Computed example of a mutant assay.
Amino acid sequence: MPRSVTYNIVHETKYRYSEPVAVCLNQLRMRPQTRPPSVVCNQCSVSIDPVPAKIDMHPDYFGNIVDSFAIESPHEALVVNVTSQVQVNAINPFDSPGIPTVAELVNAIRTGQNESDLFAKEYIFASPRIPLGDHFAEYARSIMDESSSLLDAVLHLTKHINEDFQYDSTATDVATTTQAAFELKAGVCQDFSHVQIACLRSLGLPARYVSGYLRTLPPPGKPRLIGNDESHAWISVYAGETLGWIDFDPTNACQIGVDHIPVCVGRDYDDISPMRGIVLGGGDTTLAVKVDVAPVELPTEVGPPA
């Protein structure tokens, strides 16, 4: 696996309306953030058509960059393009010294002995989309040994959810509750992530929701299809003051690598939905989203003549 990959990313969102929209107010959460040491955002630009009458960029509570805009003239279509260049560096936290056990991390969060632990503590509570419950805790305890390394235990739970749940894009939708997905044992990346976070928080482990992109690789001998990559979601677990937040992907049964490009973090999907807003008018709406994640071919260094 390469130690570092740089990507050019284009995320295109198109709305078409059957009737003119008089006014629309929207927020975007699509700008990747630099999160050392694993992610560096080299550049990011946003284009909006029609051109907004008002636009503002600001960080939200979780540190995500939000583009808020208003279009105040009649329009029958809205096109948003977010273009980024991001470098993703591979890290292997499993080689780090001093990884806490599950029990040690739970105790550290309970007692709050340093500032980092205190800030992480807010992620052990229920959030609008993710409840807590004894059934979530028992499901996790059946997989995770509290005396095991935290990272090993979380990876075991990640793989177990992947095996126990069926990936089925028809089983759920964006409004499906975490409890319903848990009972169905089916869903998509949003559902897998919400369920795993519910399990971890119910044990007293801080966990948060991550939105981003997943580079998809074509079959051998086939060309890469432009726009065929995906928006994705996974989870991040707090592993103590030294290690910080470590990401795992229950949909793909792994600790994330250089094929994952994180964008935003929050308590659950409601905190990081890529685009949300209100419109006045519009009638029936058609939405089309296209994501392209292209590795940058860096120039090969040429040495001096022999």
Rank of each mutant, 00 (worst) to 15 (best):
D67C: 09
R16P: 00
A180D: 15
S127V: 12
G240A: 07
I256H: 02
D152V: 09
P131W: 14
P97H: 10
V5R: 04
L217R: 09
L280G: 13
I278K: 11
H194P: 06
A186T: 13
Y15L: 07
W245I: 10
D117I: 00
H135L: 08
L155C: 07
S211R: 03
S18C: 08
E19D: 10
M144N: 02
D152I: 07
V210S: 01
T178H: 10
L151W: 03
S127D: 04
E76G: 01
R208S: 06
S45V: 14
E297A: 14
T216C: 04
V154G: 00
T176N: 09
D49G: 03
L105R: 04
V258H: 01
V39F: 10
H194L: 07
V21W: 06
L118N: 15
A175N: 13
D247Y: 04
N114G: 11
D247R: 03
K222W: 07
N64F: 04
A53G: 15
T300S: 14
I261P: 01
L200Y: 11
N252P: 06
I278V: 15
P93F: 06
T34S: 13
I161P: 03
K14T: 14
F62H: 10
N8S: 13
I91Y: 13
I65A: 03
Y17C: 05
T6Q: 12
R267K: 14
C189N: 04
I161A: 02
L243Q: 09
L78C: 02
D164H: 10
S193F: 05
V263P: 00
